[in-house]
Amino acid sequence: MPNKRPRGPQPDWRPKRETLRVLAAVDVVLDRYRDHLPVSLRQLFYVLFSDGVLAKTERDYKRMCEYVGMARRSGRIGWEVIRDDTQIAVQAPQSFAGPADFWGTVKAAADEYRVDRQEGQPVRLELWCEAAGMVPQLARLGSGFGIACFSGGGFDGLAGKHDAARRAVAGGVRTRVLHLGDFDQSGEHLFSSLAEDVVAFAAAGGAEVKFERVAVTAEQVAAYGLPTAPPKPSDHRSFSGTATTQAEALPPDVLADVVRVAIEQHRNPTAHRAALAREETERREIQNQLRNWPGRE
């Protein structure tokens, strides 16, 4: 029997009244957090729940996903404003349309030249999050400080843990991992599993790594009135709380503030300004050299 679910573009989609009500609320949320886009579907859902638009049920979550999916297929919502948790990262070999395209790429690289902005800092920072959908926002926050962001979901990422330890060894200074994850049994055990393995691998290579829980904490759940759910009765692992909360329940602007404060607590402003000054000087030198490069059109 053929699958009758919508496929491909749906430019003729005509949403019903209830769908339009929810999508109007989605538009408000996307406008409110336009400085923090893209947001994940889970983040969008929690804001709509906080706004009283949807109930905190799996049914309403799936309904919202369906509405937003059709809105994206129809062109009503831009593809770039929503981050899909299941989006696949793709690496393609670089190619050029011709010499002019090549030199344009070189010029763009020169204009975007950056030094290691963590040089001279007391510790080397990394941002880790449990949900892949949060990576773009966190990466944007870390970019200004030269901090990389990684998704650390799952308990079986042994290669990822080993790679983290290798980065710490290569960095030559102490490493501090700022971690964001769910406040539940799985989130707490994921955090401890990551920390214990990475710390042990790094120590074997002579490096020091420490993990810091940035979100979600019990204090944040109370301070921001985040929605909660009972712990899963089937999960018998220890848990420090009495109710669970997903990291994406933190509103995007609150999340940005929490992460920024955590970063700045470990940054030396003088060293950061020195890195930026050197970066600007070297960028201008490269741009001047490029203008006089032989053979450039």
Rank of each mutant, 00 (worst) to 15 (best):
L250T: 01
R166V: 13
G205T: 07
D197T: 14
G171F: 01
F191T: 00
G160C: 10
L178E: 00
P227M: 07
H236P: 02
K161Y: 11
S186R: 12
A170Q: 14
H236N: 14
E212W: 11
S238Q: 14
P252N: 06
A170L: 14
L226A: 06
A195D: 08
F191V: 08
Q246M: 11
T245G: 03
R213Y: 05
F191A: 03
V173L: 12
H162N: 08
F201M: 09
L178Q: 00
A202P: 04
R166S: 11
A215T: 05
R213V: 05
G225R: 04
G241R: 04
G206C: 11
K161M: 15
D163T: 09
D197E: 14
T244G: 07
A203W: 07
E219A: 15
Q185N: 13
A203N: 13
S238H: 15
H179G: 00
K210L: 15
T242P: 02
T217M: 11
T175Y: 06
P227V: 05
S240Y: 10
H179Q: 09
P231E: 08
D184P: 08
H236G: 15
R167A: 11
A165T: 05
G187I: 07
R167G: 08
E196F: 11
A207N: 02
R213Q: 10
A202T: 04
S193P: 06
A170V: 11
E212R: 10
T244N: 09
S193H: 14
G225T: 06
Y224S: 02
A202C: 13
F239M: 09
D253I: 11
G206T: 12
T217R: 14
E219I: 03
T217G: 12
A207W: 02
K161Q: 15
S238G: 13
V198Y: 01
V216E: 05
R213K: 14
K232V: 04
A223R: 15
A165P: 00
V199K: 02
G225L: 08
F183S: 03
L178I: 10
L180I: 13
A200P: 05
A207S: 10
V209Q: 06
R167I: 07
A218Y: 08
V254C: 06
V199E: 10
A195P: 01
R213F: 05
F201N: 00
Q185C: 14
V173S: 13
D184I: 02
A165V: 04
K161G: 12
Q246E: 13
V221Q: 00
D235A: 08
H179K: 06
S234C: 10
F239G: 03
